[in-house]
Simulated assay, not measured.
Amino acid sequence: MIKPRTETPDLSINLLNDTKWTLSEQKPENFTLVVVYRGKHCPVCKKYLETIQDHLGDFKDKGVNVVAISSDSKAKAEASYKEWDIKDVPLGYEFPIEEARSWGLFISKGIKNEPEEFVEPAIFLIRPDRTLYASSIQTMPFARPEIVELIKSIDFVNNKDYPARGEA
């Protein structure tokens, strides 16, 4: 588990636009939001990422860079990109399971039409110096932070200079 106010591991992942996204190279005004989603098999993830798409402008206005990543193959990520309404969401693929574990993420074994193993969802709100501000780590697709509430919280944090909590 990564504690708030401590440096996160660096993260480098291939994006569907044939670029490599690297956390240490991000230069957001306030935060980088790393959204880990389960993969194409997850209808809850589809809705969540589509909501992020609807609010990308809000995140940008608040100085937040967004990336969504999964352990899906490139082909599955491409299919998600084509079938879901997420045309502006930077989409990363093949997030290694062992690296996901180093971030404190939960891994599930597939049932029915799911991949053999995949990463459960999480969000990480990371300061420009790569220290963790906040995280929400799930064990299943449900109970994720609401995007609109997260945006309101970012406003509060920025306006009140509210410190990261949970570091003790």
Rank of each mutant, 00 (worst) to 15 (best):
P4W: 02
E94M: 11
E120I: 11
Y162M: 13
E146I: 09
K109M: 03
I123C: 05
R165I: 06
T19Q: 15
I2D: 03
F156E: 12
V119F: 03
R38P: 12
V64N: 04
T22Y: 06
A100K: 04
I107G: 12
N158V: 15
F106W: 12
P141E: 10
F124R: 04
W21I: 01
T8K: 01
I107T: 08
I137V: 15
V35H: 00
G110E: 07
V36D: 10
A122I: 03
E29G: 08
E83I: 00
I137S: 07
E94I: 05
F95W: 08
L125V: 00
Q53D: 05
N30A: 08
D88T: 04
T8Q: 03
S136W: 12
E98H: 09
T32G: 02
P43N: 15
P43S: 15
E98P: 02
N17L: 12
T139W: 08
T32I: 07
N17G: 07
F59P: 00
I111H: 13
Y162R: 10
H41P: 00
H55W: 00
E25Y: 11
R144F: 04
A68K: 09
S80I: 06
I154N: 11
D155V: 07
E114Q: 15
M140W: 09
Y48M: 07
T22L: 12
D88I: 00
E83N: 14
F124Y: 14
C45R: 02
R144C: 06
E29I: 08
L49T: 00
L125G: 02
P96K: 05
L105V: 03
E116F: 07
N158Q: 13
P9L: 15
E116V: 13
L33C: 03
E120T: 11
D10S: 13
K60E: 11
P96G: 03
V89H: 11
P96N: 04
S73F: 08
K74C: 10
K40V: 01
V67C: 10
A164G: 09
D88L: 01
E116L: 12
K82C: 06
K74A: 07
I52H: 02
R130H: 12
K82G: 10
L56E: 05
L125P: 00
K3L: 13
G110F: 06
W84L: 13
A134E: 06
V148I: 15
G39W: 02
F31Y: 13
R144P: 00
Y48K: 05
A134C: 06
S153P: 02
E167R: 10
R5F: 04
L105E: 05
Y48R: 07
A164K: 06
R38Q: 09
I86A: 11
R165E: 09
E116R: 14
E120A: 11
W84F: 13
D85V: 01
K76T: 06
P4G: 04
K27G: 01
E120H: 05
E117Y: 13
N65P: 01
S80F: 04
V66L: 10
D61H: 13
I86D: 01
K74N: 11
N14H: 10
E167F: 13
K3N: 07
W103Q: 08
Q138M: 13
C45T: 02
I111K: 15
N14M: 13
E146K: 14
G92Q: 07
P90F: 01
V66D: 03
I154V: 15
L33T: 00
G110C: 08
S153V: 06
G166T: 00
K3H: 07
W84R: 07
L16G: 11
